[in-house]
Design a protein around this nucleic acid. Structure first.
Lengths: 351, 351
DNA sequence: CTCTAGGCTGAATGCGCTTTCAGAGGTCGG
DNA sequence: CCGACCTCTGAAAGCGCATTCAGCCTAGAG
């Protein structure tokens, strides 16, 4: 009574349910007169095909999924004068990119942040209803991923690459290399300190290797390891400044941080200590979050093509859906070095 | 062989499928020993419950849906110095708000822009696989909505209210009233022009009524209709400036535009005509898009609580899912008037 | 030791749709 | 006028899971 089904429509239209189904799935295979009759009945019965039933019967959902970490809010931690709701976060950009690409391919997008504790639940929930799944960073434990990967295409965004899944990352190494090269070659800085992320962050480590490479290239002494490490938050950036300045403050010419969040924190700490940026100390970040342009001085950073990350993810998923046998691919997206005030550049240039 | 089902798990674990199902749906109803055995088998078989089958059998999906217009990109039309990917668009904010609230309630979020031409398709596609649907603005033709509304809870965001569905909108009237009052009372402006949206935009019309009310209140002559109308794009804003200035330029003291997009366009047009804002002419917008803070002069506007729109939508949907009989409700969310440079205020204040 | 009340589990049914596989009718050439 | 084909439609068989209804078994009461 309440929600009409194919049976109701079929009966009222005097056809079989097979015909009703065909009217929706393959209209051309039904004689126009019949088709119109079915559609008319469907309309005034208020018939709406059940996605679940369709999915079950056809073994495909027409939906792609995206899982991202729950931390989500950390970025907006302490925004100077903007409301956080005005700033694009990493996940927002990925979502937007995926949604657009998915739409182009006729897919809808199912998104869910993986509630840390409910990992098993939420994730399976999502995985169970999509034709392909994109996973941001280390959102999901590897073993769960493998289970899911056996059932549907999975693409990992950033984070650690794993042989069996498609993988997309940005040019962390290359970006940090070019940025560091700029500091050394164009600004003539020699004594740079690197504030790394947690050792288990593949992105952070890749960035550090780029930092090393720039030193190698310039014939400078090779830094063995990040001078300090932080957890990628603004607080960590502030803390890092404290430690570094107390350690060998005077000699330091530049502070290279593994991400923008920490860089913003560093900027704050330096300001309150009365250290002028970039005159006394250059500062750089990585990611290109919206906030990086709003802080003063504006932050020199490396901008990730976050939206494209999402779009590429869809391309890979769609390709993989069509050819489940295709071997796993790994893609690296190019980044842009954004030269702004905090490194000593005037205005804003792209490298 | 490829994707294991309850049957495979049940067989390997030596139980019935009912028990396997219970292990997932209602763990406490299964003896721990049995449960663990089932879970172990499930794990090494790589079992993943099928969302479609679940949905079909239980008649609920655990997913909420959001449909938004495809235009999406219009806002980022011509951004001064920011890449568009750095700006939050209206839909991004709604998505974020809904995702968060949905997560709190244990729902995932399915999003899809309604491809103008594919309306029937995409929409039914989404509606068929969710437990509740939020629809942005006039994304969906009313009749389709009614069909959907008969089957699942629907909440309309902004746009026209319709008796049978829940509805959430922002305080268009009140916001425009307060903003206009500010121009009249605090800046002493008398000759204001209103650039409206299309006559069929309920939001635009409500804003105009707020504009009128402020005049009434101040004892000024009542404007009968918007002085000009535009299609809410930047181009329309530029065009409106042309027409108004040619018509009765000299006398004009303030330009009140129905949305930020047009206001930004107006700002550009005024600059190229050499009209100084706010010295010669005050300008205001409506919406509070990110761009409004980036343009120079910064734009005085009314900020919509867009994220809350999404959150409230989820609350309404969830409530309605639990009680399908609840009568339709209409909610109006409060807005903030953001006083910035373009009206003659210094710095940034909130009214 | 017997009886009863629960706690667990299995058999069976149905959710609403897609998809063969045939068959019914109609078309067209010979 | 007949047979060979098409085109269109229907019957039927699942798709993978939730859930009801019994039935079995065990623990506890008497």
């Amino acid at each position: 009574m309440s929600t009409p089904t194919v049976y109701d429509v079929a009966e009222r239209a005097g056809v079989s349910i097979a015909t009703v189904s065909r009217v929706y799935r393959n209209p051309d295979s039904v004689r126009p007169a019949t088709r119109d009759r079915v559609l008319a009945v469907a309309r005034d019965l208020g018939y709406l095909p059940s996605g679940s039933a369709r999915g079950l019967a056809s073994r495909t959902t027409g939906v792609l999924g995206l899982c991202f970490p729950d931390i989500h809010d950390a970025e907006a931690e302490d925004v100077p004068d903007a409301e956080d709701s005005e700033l694009m976060l990493y996940s927002d950009e990925v979502i937007r990119g995926m949604e657009r690409a998915a739409r182009r391919h006729g897919y809808a997008l199912l998104i869910a942040a993986s509630h840390a504790d409910a990992v098993g639940g939420q994730l399976a929930e999502v995985a169970g209803r999509v034709d392909g799944l994109a996973v941001l960073a280390q959102t999901v434990p590897g073993q769960d991923l493998d289970v899911i990967g056996r059932r549907l295409p999975v693409v990992l965004l950033a984070g650690q690459r794993e042989e069996e899944h498609d993988h997309i990352e940005v040019a962390n190494f290359d970006g940090q290399l070019r940025l560091t090269r700029h500091l050394i070659a164009d600004h003539g800085l020699r004594r740079l300190a690197f504030v790394g992320g947690p050792p288990d962050s593949p992105d952070g480590e890749a960035r550090f290797r780029g930092f090393q490479a720039a030193h190698l290239e310039a014939g400078l002494p090779l830094p063995e390891a990040p001078d300090v490490r932080g957890d990628l938050t603004q607080a960590a950036g502030r803390k890092a400044v404290g430690e570094l300045l107390d350690r060998d403050g005077a000699a330091l010419q530049g502070l290279v941080l593994a991400n923008d969040q920490m860089a913003v924190g560093a900027l704050h700490a330096l300001e309150s200590r009365g250290v002028r940026v970039p005159e006394e100390l250059a500062v750089t970040g990585f990611d290109g979050i919206a906030l990086s342009r709003l802080v003063r001085p504006t932050l020199t950073t490396v901008r990730q093509p976050t939206g494209r990350l999402g779009e590429e993810a869809v391309e890979l998923l769609v390709g993989r859906i069509q050819d489940r046998a295709r071997p796993a691919v790994a893609r690296v997206l190019p980044v842009k070095v954004m030269l702004r005030a905090s490194c000593g550049c005037a205005g804003e240039r792209t490298l």
